[in-house]
Write a protein that binds this DNA or RNA. Structure first.
Lengths: 127, 127
DNA sequence: CAGTATCCAGCTAGATACTG
DNA sequence: CAGTATCTAGCTGGATACTG
């Protein structure tokens, strides 16, 4: 029915949204906590902000909003003072989390092989 | 050893490279042919160009070069006239292909749910 | 066929300042 | 704490023209 190979297919735009480092990292984090080994659990905005080092407030908020709009995360506001906001995976988000977690793990696992390949490639080019 | 949550970790940059629609689509295509159901097989430049509708020559070439440099695809030039160039997954590329194929499939499978969620979200915002 | 080279519009995303 | 708003540098990526 849908085919992301087609530029006009809505799934192409969806693929565009869900590919991107911040989506991968946010979904990885929410799915299993900071160490990526536990069970899915809600996380606070500030907790995410600290965990994903280098993320700007703007990108974090923007990405979380997009994920919320797409039904992948839910946003809960607790009226404490100051306010507490938690983000949690929906069932839909959880299904994507599993893939994103694997992608993040792939990058970490194969970093050495990729680095070695780059050295070889660049050396060949220099000659 | 590596942790993509850390901005300074090399795996963060690698994650940045492999997240992106063209990487997902190219690896999906190379891994299992146009219909994404067959076995991995080499594909020609023009074949990829036709399959990934909307991709510019620049992006296709640029992405293929990056994937080649990272050791995910191999490039073979056959000196016919005109020249024939084929791209094929390496073993490393094949391992990432499996993940990327799932990501593409996820987008296609869950497009309807996401679209429905967007409608709900936007309606709530309008109120 | 399979690129390379160049130009440039537009979006991404960081920095900064401010707020309920 | 959890944002919003604004400004902007610079990168992404599309369009176009050319080539072995």
């Amino acid at each position: 029915m849908y085919d992301a190979f087609l530029a006009v297919c809505p799934s192409r735009q969806l693929l565009e949204r869900i590919s991107g480092k911040w989506v991968v990292l946010i979904l990885s984090a929410l799915g299993s906590g900071p160490d990526c080994t536990g069970d899915p659990r809600p996380m606070r905005y500030s907790e995410l902000s600290r965990l994903l080092s280098g993320v700007s407030q703007k990108m974090l908020t923007q990405t979380l909003r997009a994920l919320e709009r797409d039904g992948l995360v839910s946003r809960t506001v607790t009226p404490t003072v100051p306010v507490t906001v938690t983000y949690e995976l929906t069932d839909l988000g959880l299904s994507l989390h599993r893939l994103m977690r694997d992608v993040k793990a792939w990058a970490e696992t194969n970093m050495d092989d990729v680095a070695a390949s780059r050295v070889t490639y660049d050396e060949a080019g220099a000659r």
